[in-house]
Design a binder for these strands. Structure first.
Length: 477
RNA sequence: GGCCUCAUGGUCAAGAGGUUAAGACGUUGCCCUCUCAAGGCAAAAUCAGGGGUUCAAUUCCCCUUGGGGCUACCA
């Protein structure tokens, strides 16, 4: 059996689009599931769209996502070069061959003339005007330096048909297709041409890409046929949507991998979530590692309809990854986000990390969650009032002074010890420990809701700061 | 407009003629609990509409409606 070779062929736009990332992931999973190769090819034939640093974005996003490619511009391989702009001569050579085979022809039409071809609906279809030019005339005009393009010669009638592994049989009438440009006047190929030549030359067995190519694939097949090449297997993927009517767009930052990383999502969670958009493994697994996905990946689980990107679920999944991390790993990843706040200078962030891990979904939630540790609170005493806990300012007034003395006598400010000592204090006061902890927590933080309980917060604040805070809370009462 | 294509809860989705129509996120409630999370339990919520085919359609066919894509010297 032929070796499975899939490819991811992004154009260097400066972003790693999440839709593109999913396409890359599926191509990778398919290849690896079948012990095949995954290839990266850069489609940079549009020179006007060149973006500085865009290649690095592609390389690093793929790598940090765990999608290692077997061949590519920066890792080499036997089918290079893997950057289309470096393959210009190859395309020209094959374009000329296609002209000889009758599958394409030179065209000298001016932009002005093409515009006269526009119909009442604003659509334009080339009229094969230059197809009737004799070989001699074409040669003469090229020799004289006239600018030209090479167009695909598509039959005027007939129907083309192919099998897509997701969508089934696709039939399109040739009459619907235009004699689109294969080689531009700058000598560069268009996507329409380059993808065919490269996929064949690089021996890509399965072409995995978005549905935007579903209806133009017949054009590509025509070329495979004209050259006498075997067509690849096609696997078209449904679109990822922002909402019911809009695609995920790079523009708005809702589709950009790096933006998600900067917001404190972790790579594994993004990849995992994106894998689930349009694919459901046989065992219905949701949280999966890449090796597990490779094992489970199957085309029958891929859906045909577009799916809407749900960042609420992504956040949840990211939270799952966070919770599953060891404390050390979490701390390492969370550190940059702690450092966006003053807390990292004032307290032991490893202690904060422990209590916060299960209370955030993305790392960028951290600074806001811990800000109360930086600023000593000022608050109204109504905060002490809580019906369920049976507390209010009166309870606070009664309990807090005694807690203060207790705190100043405690040497071991560990959570366990604080809990034990203060619990027994509540017993001697014959109040519920939860009442004591509630008012203490309020006194320490001035917040109705905090990450962690009173004793955990005491441990983080330390003896000195804790006492200061309780004192100042008493003054406010 | 033409062509291609899609359609199960709010979202991701399983199910491929006979099911009490899975599961997850979210929502709501309860339990646990030093607040909140986390964790546990439970509940509400779906087959777009209309025709066929069939003993039987969410499942097959057709139409309608709605969504997406293509229709570039962009990919």
């Amino acid at each position: 059996m032929k070796k499975v070779r899939t490819r991811f062929a992004p154009s260097p736009t400066g972003f790693m689009h999440l839709g593109g990332l999913r396409t890359a992931l599926y191509a990778y999973l398919y290849a690896k599931h079948h012990d095949g190769d995954f290839i990266l090819r850069i489609e940079d034939t549009d020179r006007e769209r060149f973006v500085e640093g865009a290649l690095e974005v592609i390389y690093s996003s793929l790598l940090s996502s765990g999608l290692r490619y077997d061949e590519g511009p920066d890792v080499g391989g036997n089918y290079g070069p893997y950057t289309q702009s470096e393959r210009k001569e190859i395309y020209m050579e094959y374009a000329k061959k296609l002209v000889e085979l009758g599958g394409a022809y030179y065209c000298f039409c001016s932009k002005e003339r093409l515009e006269t071809l526009t119909d009442e609906n604003g659509n334009r279809k080339y009229d094969k005007h230059c197809l009737k030019l004799s070989k001699e005339e074409v040669e003469k005009r090229i020799a004289s330096g006239e600018s030209f393009v090479i167009r695909q010669n598509i039959p005027l009638e007939g129907t083309s048909s192919y099998e897509d592994l997701i969508y089934g049989t696709i039939e399109v009438d040739y009459a619907e297709l235009e004699d689109n440009i294969l080689i531009k006047s700058d000598g560069m190929p268009t996507y329409n041409f380059a993808n065919v030549i490269d996929d064949h030359l690089m021996e890509i067995s399965h072409v995995i890409r978005g549905t935007e190519y579903l209806s133009s694939t017949p054009k590509y097949n025509l070329m495979y046929d004209a050259f006498g090449w075997e067509r690849p297997v096609y696997i078209h993927l449904p679109t990822i949507m922002k909402d019911a009517t809009r695609k995920l767009s790079k523009r708005y930052g809702d589709a950009n991998f790096d933006d998600f990383i900067n917001k404190g999502y972790i790579e594994e969670a993004i990849i995992n979530y994106v894998a689930l958009l349009g694919w459901c493994p046989k065992n219905n697994a949701e949280k999966m590692t890449i090796p597990e996905m490779i094992e489970l990946f199957d085309l029958s689980g891929i859906s045909k309809s577009p799916s809407i990107f749900d960042d609420v679920k992504l956040r949840w999944l990211n939270g799952e990854y966070l919770k599953a991390m060891s404390d050390d790993e979490f701390l390492t990843r969370a550190k940059p986000f702690f450092e966006k706040s003053e807390v990292s200078k004032l307290y032991d962030i490893s202690k904060i990390a422990k209590i916060i891990k299960s209370r955030i979904e993305i790392l960028s939630d951290i600074p806001e969650k811990v800000s109360f540790l930086v600023e000593r609170p000022s608050f109204d005493s109504v905060l002490y009032e809580n019906k369920k806990q049976k507390t209010d300012a009166t309870v606070a007034k009664q309990v807090l002074p005694l807690v203060l003395t207790a705190l100043s006598e405690i040497e071991d400010f560990s959570n366990d010890n604080l809990f034990k000592t203060l619990s027994s204090l509540s017993e001697t006061l014959s109040i519920k420990s939860r009442q004591l902890f509630y008012v203490l927590r309020i006194a320490l933080t001035g917040l109705e809701v905090t990450p962690g309980g009173a004793t955990e917060i005491l441990e983080i604040l330390g003896k000195e700061e804790s006492i200061k805070r309780v004192k100042s809370a008493l003054e406010l009462l």
